[in-house]
Nucleic acid binder design. Sequence first.
DNA 1: AACAAAACTTACTAATTAGTAAGTAAGTTG
DNA 2: CAACTTACTTACTAATTAGTAAGTTTTGTT
Lengths: 198, 198
Amino acid sequence: MPTQVPSASLPPDTRTRILDLAEELLLERGFNAFSYQHLARELGVKPAAIHYHYPSKDDLGTALVTRQLRRLRKWRDLPRVADLPPNQQFEALLAVYDGHLSHDRRVCLFGALAADFRTLPTSMQAELRTFNRELTEWLAQVLAVGRATGTMRFVGSPAAKALQVLTTLAGALQVARVHDETPFQVIVNQVRLELFQP
Amino acid sequence: MPTQVPSASLPPDTRTRILDLAEELLLERGFNAFSYQHLARELGVKPAAIHYHYPSKDDLGTALVTRQLRRLRKWRDLPRVADLPPNQQFEALLAVYDGHLSHDRRVCLFGALAADFRTLPTSMQAELRTFNRELTEWLAQVLAVGRATGTMRFVGSPAAKALQVLTTLAGALQVARVHDETPFQVIVNQVRLELFQP
DNA sequence: AACAAAACTTACTAATTAGTAAGTAAGTTG
DNA sequence: CAACTTACTTACTAATTAGTAAGTTTTGTT
C-alpha cells in the first residue's frame, strides 16, 4: 500500500519506470483506459520496448498487482508498523489512504480494478483476490486486538468489521474522485468516530 | 435505482433496447469495455443504427446516467417508498442493492463509473455527481427522521452517516464481484447491526 | 396513393489497438 | 577480441475503434 519505499533509490531502469507509469495511469484512469502507446510516448521509448519487458498487457497488469501485494506484505511486516499498538496501526492504514487522496486523488488498487474485474486476465483476478484477502485479514487482527485491549469499540466480528471498513475506505477514494476531498474526510471521520467512541 | 419498472411493458423499441443492453454491459464490464460493435452484434443491428439513436458514445453514456437519475427520483417519490417509516425506507434501499447482487452481481452505477471517472465526458460526470448527491440527500433525510423517531441509532451527522453507508454499499457490490456474494452479505449485516443496535 | 419522416443498412475513413519479427547497438563474459 | 546477451528500434499485421455520408426500406399521415 505505501506509495514509495524511500530506500536507497537508484535511478530506476526502464522496466521499473514502465511499471510506475502504468500504476499511475491505472490508479488515475483505469485499466482499460491506457495503452502501450500511452506508456511508450510518455517514457520516450517505442511501444515494442514495453512488449519486450511485458509481452502482453496481461503480463503488465499482473506484474502491477503482484508488486502491490509484495508492498503490502513488506509494509505490514515493517517494525514501525508491526510493533505499533492497534489504534496506531489503524491510523497508519488511514495514512496510506490519505496518501492516495493527496496524490491527485488516486483510488486504491482494489477500487481501480473492481468495476472492470471481469475484463481482467485471470492471473490479475487471482492476485487481486489475494491482495484483498490478506489486507482484510491483517485489519481483522488489528481490530481484534484493539477491541480486546479496550482501545477500540465495535459490534460484530473483527472479520466483518474489517471487511466493512476497508470497503468503505476504497469507496471513499472513489467518492473523492467524483466530488472532491471533502466527502473522503467526512467518511473517514465517521469511521474513526464510530470505532473510537467512548 | 430500481432495475425494472414493471408498468405496462410494451415491446421495447430499439432505442430502449440499446440503452438496456448498454446499461447491462456498463454494470457488468465497465464503460470502456464495450463498443458500438458489441451492442450492434447482440441486438442484431448494424453499428450505424446505434449511432443513429446515440450519435456518440458520450451521448449514449449520458443518456444512461440521465435515465438512472430519472429512475432514482421516481423510485424515491413512489408512495410505496415515500410513505414508509424510515427503517423500512432503509430496507427498501438495501433491497435495491440486493437486487443488483442477484442480477449477476452487477455493481451500482456509481461503482461502475467512479474508477474511470476521468475518462468520462463531462456531461456524464455532471449527471453522476447529481445522482450521487440526490441519493445521499435522500438517505440523510431518512436517517435524520429514523434517529429522531428512535428507530435508528448512530453518532455523527445524518449527512455523514448517509455518505458513509452509501459508499459502503457501493463498495460492497464491488467486493462481491471480486470474491462472491458472502462478503456483501457480511458488510450489509454489519451496517444493519450498527444502525439498529439497542 | 402520395409523400414525408423515421429507422435503418451499406460502405467507407482515419485512428488506435495489441502484438510480432527482424534487425541493431551497447554492454558482458569467456 | 569474439561470442553472447540485454535492451532496445524499425517496420509491419490484423483487428477493432468511433464516427460519417449516402442510399434504402419501413412506417405513419393526409
